[in-house]
Each structure stands twice: as C-alpha cells, then as structure tokens.
C-alpha cells in the first residue's frame, strides 16, 4: 500500500470512517498518541514545537520533538521531525528533518488518507545506517537489495 524512493514514503489507506473522525484522530494530540504509541504534553496547533514520549513498552524513556506545520481542517495536517531520533545520547537538533503530510479526501465508503514522509535523502547516511543496525542484526540481503533496486531503475 505505497511506493518508495530513497527520499520519500507514500502511503494510502481507505478508512471506513467520516472525515471528521479521521481528522480528530490525527490532530487531537491525545488521539494521535493512542495509535502513534506516544504521549504529548500539549495540544497540536500550527507552529507548535512539542515533545512526545514513546509509550511502547520497553521504549518509554525515549522522547522526540515534533514541529506542527499545517492544520487545514479535515484536509491537511503536516509536521516535521527527526525520523528515528531515538538515541538519547545524540543531539539531532542541527540535523535535517523530514516532513510528514497527511491529506484527507472524502470518498464513497469513508475517507481516503494519504501519507507522505519526505526528505530522507537529507538525513545523514550514518544515521540511516545506525537505525538499520539497531533494527536488523545482519546484512545478508545486501546484494539482493541492490539488484532489485537496479532492476526497478534500469
């Protein structure tokens, strides 16, 4: 349910719920936290810089920053953050952020939600490698991955 390049992630999902319901789940920081597995100290509003804390068991000590960009009611919600900025010993504040954009569209049967997170090519490669190392033990599939990439991008 989506496409990838090295710079952006795109997702689309049909939610069988009214647009107003989806909007609330995205922009009410408490509701956002329930599915995003985090808690926020403040409500979301455009321009707000806030801190979230992860609620996923075992990761409760991890915090992350979010800067809300746009809130166009029931249409567009966007924020910037440092993706995967979960190493408490590192200062990510000077590093580039990615932009996360949710757009809502009313369609038959519910709401079409599109998600785009972009700007990954600006994230230092070392950071990306660290995230992988933390998440995968081995690198066995390296050659498979590059071949697949080049087949898709001849």
């Amino acid at each position: 349910m989506g496409t990838t390049t090295t710079d952006r992630i795109t997702k689309e999902i049909l939610l069988k719920a009214p647009r107003s319901r989806v909007w609330r789940a995205l922009t009410d920081s408490k509701e956002f936290g329930t599915w995003f597995q985090s808690v926020f100290t403040e409500p979301f509003r455009p321009g707000a810089r806030l801190q979230g804390r992860i609620t996923y068991p075992g990761y409760e000590h991890l915090k992350f920053d979010l800067v809300i960009e746009k809130m166009e009611p029931e249409r567009l919600f966007s924020f910037r953050w440092h993706p995967n900025a979960v190493d408490p010993s590192l200062d990510y504040s000077k590093e580039p952020t990615t932009l996360v954009e949710f757009t809502l569209e009313e369609i038959e049967g519910g709401t079409l939600l599109k998600l785009v997170e972009s700007g990954f090519d600006a994230i230092p490669l070392a950071r990306r490698a660290d995230a992988l190392k933390a998440n995968e033990g081995g690198w066995a599939e390296q050659m498979v991955a590059i071949e697949a990439y080049l087949r898709r991008n001849p």
């Binding site: 349910m1 989506g2 990838t4 390049t5 090295t6 992630i9 997702k11 993706p83 995967n84 998600l115 997170e117 990954f120 090519d121 994230i123 490669l125 990306r128 490698a129 995230a131 992988l132 998440n135 995968e136 690198w139 599939e141 390296q142 991955a145 590059i146 990439y149």
Partner: peptide, 17 residues
C-alpha cells in the same frame, strides 16, 4: 549507500504501516 538508503526506508515504511 544505496542499500542503506533503501533498507532504511523500508524500515520506516513498515513502521508507518
């Protein structure tokens, strides 16, 4: 470099899923 870029994105992509 390409592998890192792609696998990293796969990781983030799965989290969004």
């Amino acid at each position: 470099q390409l592998i890192v870029a792609h696998r990293y994105l796969d990781l983030i992509s799965k989290r969004w899923d």
